[in-house]
């Protein structure tokens, strides 16, 4: 069972300090990620879901140490990567890659795609020019791009094609884990499904695991095997996709599902009204962070943050209703 686990994140925490106010700024703490634990299995797509500011992207970046976590453990194949030094970490990044929402801002506009794709292979001395070319040709074919792509610049491509280029770049070292941060949210529906299908195909061909950071629950339900729902820096519920979508337990998960529009007029219903807005991660409420908006708020919810509770082997929740 445990050999099945590629990545385990334990008690991850990341607080940022920001200055607010003028002319006398005050230092404030943003609890971006607080006590987050989950695991990603081999060849699994693990979804991190939540609304803006919930910390889902920070979790994704922490796993690669693109932001340095304050506390916790990140175990890849059982080895904690947080104590590793720079050069070890650089080697490790071949195993873990990231894809961003907007591929345009992550591709160098003055470089031809061929140069962008070949550079990491040259830096790591992965072969002769001919060998490198062969690796790149193979990957281009895998992501559905023609060889002419190599002689073009990023601006010559549409959003969907640029995302394919970003995927090609992520695949160069044959990673085991790809962190995909909202990879399809900027794309049109017809292109979105092309890219999702490509991710699935590559998962099988390259034995990939994904951490899929997203806000669109419909996409997550289609694509992810297991899902964690985040609210204000914490995971409030996680579990198997089917259980989470069919028997959501946390009131926030239920509210998110009820607010997601369904493309079927027969399902038209008064869209569930969740009052209020997401609080800020600077002034997190006392007790359960969700209690000011929660329709099932009790006395204890105002005082104490609920402990994590596994309802079943594949579904857990942080909510006083289930303790």
């Amino acid at each position: 069972m445990s050999s099945d686990i590629l990545l385990r994140v334990e008690g991850l925490r990341k607080f940022f300090t920001v200055k607010r106010g003028f002319p006398n700024p005050v230092k404030l703490t943003v609890k971006a990620v607080d006590d987050v634990s989950f695991e990603v299995r081999r060849r699994e797509s693990f979804g991190l879901v939540g609304e803006s500011g919930c910390g889902k992207s920070t979790v994704g970046r922490s796993v690669l140490r693109l932001v340095e976590p304050d506390a916790g453990q990140i175990l890849l194949h059982g080895q904690d990567i947080l104590p590793l030094d720079r050069s070890h970490m650089q080697d490790l990044r071949q195993k873990m890659q990231i894809i961003f929402q907007d591929p345009y801002s992550s591709l160098n506009p003055r470089r031809k795609i061929g140069q962008t794709l070949a550079e990491p292979l040259r830096v790591h001395r992965m072969g002769t020019g001919g060998e490198i070319r062969a690796i790149i040709d193979r990957i281009l074919d895998d992501v559905g791009l023609s060889p002419e792509t190599l002689d073009k610049f990023p601006h010559e491509f549409s959003g969907g094609q640029r995302q394919r280029i970003a995927i090609a770049r992520a695949l160069i070292f044959r990673p085991e884990l790809i962190i995909a941060d909202e990879p399809v949210s900027a794309l049109d529906v017809s292109i979105q499904s092309q890219i999702l299908l490509l991710f699935e195909k590559l998962q099988a061909e390259y034995d990939l695991s994904y951490i899929f950071v997203a806000h669109d629950l419909a996409v997550v339900r289609y694509f992810c095997h297991r899902v964690a729902i985040m609210y204000l820096g914490r995971i409030v519920e996680q579990g198997d996709r089917n259980r989470l979508f069919e028997e959501p337990r946390h009131p926030y998960t239920r509210a998110l599902l009820a607010a997601s529009p369904i493309p079927d007029p027969r399902a038209r219903r008064r869209m569930a009204q969740l009052e209020g807005e997401v609080a800020s991660a600077i002034n997190t409420p006392e007790g359960c962070y969700f209690h000011p908006r929660c329709p099932e708020c009790r006395e204890i919810c105002r005082r104490e943050y609920p402990p994590w509770h596994w309802i079943a082997a594949d579904q857990g929740v942080a909510c006083h209703l289930y303790v």
Partner: peptide
């Protein structure tokens, strides 16, 4: 095709359809 290419929050979809090419 567009309707078949949309993932749904209320259903398990085995395989999404897609529209080849681009606008």
């Amino acid at each position: 095709m567009l309707l078949r290419a949309v993932p749904r929050v209320d259903l398990n979809i085995e395989k999404l359809s897609y529209i080849p090419g681009q606008v």
